[in-house]
């Protein structure tokens, strides 16, 4: 920078800036390394080094994806999956956050109700999918419910943990300022737990896509999970890969969106 003191020699400046320059090179390289993997895959497939029936060339997959995009076939599946994940996510997250705040703030509630959640939490959500299909049918309701259950527990535990880690001093400030219980809840416990809540939201988003993929494999006539499964059954491997890429990108974009929200709503936390 021009602000550098004039007493530094060219060589000193060069050495001073070397680590930053190296860091920039690494960052650029980091963008390209995944592409290198794709390139390797493409070449291996073109030269028949890997079995093309299982690993069609990325260019072939891209071609399939393009045709499916043009025919709008993909969007119907993406829409179905997004709707299920979105509704199930909200159905799980809102009660999860509220229960987490309540149990985090109230020791009696935590002591009495905590063990119930602790007993239910370890049940794998996918293991109860058949039960949920039995109760709620093969329609969308069962998908909402299974996602909501998975999201609920992650939000509940992350929120409760966040509230319980609230420094006592903030509670004392609220009390000295004359806060009611509800005001303490809304003005102190909630913002103090917000960083943990966002950690939970990101974890829950990841797990929602795992659950919806499994749920759509088993009992659905639409959705990206269904599409992957149906492609497998007809041995349309290229299409299957398109499905895998699409659901991964959906998960990735969801996390990016949540991170943007986090920067917006938790500006005081270090990111």
């Amino acid at each position: 920078m021009s602000a550098a003191p004039v007493t530094l020699t060219e060589d000193e400046l060069r050495r001073l800036k070397a680590p930053a320059r190296r860091e920039r090179l690494f960052r650029i390289a980091s963008y390209f390394s995944p592409l290198l993997l794709l390139l390797l895959w493409e070449l291996s497939s073109q030269f028949n080094l890997i079995d093309r029936r299982f690993f069609p060339a990325p260019s072939a997959i891209a071609g399939t994806a393009w045709r499916m995009t043009v025919s709008l076939e993909l969007f119907q599946h993406i829409g179905a999956t997004l709707r299920r994940v979105g509704i199930g996510y909200v159905m799980g997250a809102v009660p999860g956050i509220v229960m987490g705040l309540i149990l985090g703030l109230s020791r009696p509630a935590r002591r009495v109700l905590g063990p119930i959640f602790a007993a239910l939490y370890p049940v794998p959500k996918i293991a109860i999918l058949p039960l949920i299909l039995l109760i709620f049918g093969v329609g969308d309701a069962s998908k909402f419910v299974v996602i909501a259950i998975g999201v609920f527990f992650l939000m509940f535990y992350n929120t409760m943990g966040g509230v319980m880690q609230t420094p006592q001093i903030y509670m004392d400030v609220a009390r000295n300022a004359g806060a009611t219980r509800f005001q303490t809840f809304r003005r102190i416990a909630f913002p103090a737990a917000l960083p943990s809540i966002f950690t939970g939201l990101k974890l829950a988003a990841g797990s929602s896509y795992i659950i919806i993929a499994a749920a759509e494999f088993l009992g659905a006539r639409s959705g990206v999970g269904f599409f992957i499964w149906a492609s497998w059954q007809t041995f349309a491997v290229s299409r299957m890969f398109v499905g895998i890429v699409v659901i991964s990108v959906m998960g990735y974009l969801t996390i990016l969106a949540l991170e943007a929200l986090e920067r917006r709503f938790v500006p005081w936390a270090k990111h």
């Binding site: 001093i169 400030v173 005081w268």
Partner: peptide
Amino acid sequence: TPPAMVFQEASVLPW
């Protein structure tokens, strides 16, 4: 009025 307190440790609400 109840007494107002200035605490020993940092007590400014970060949010």
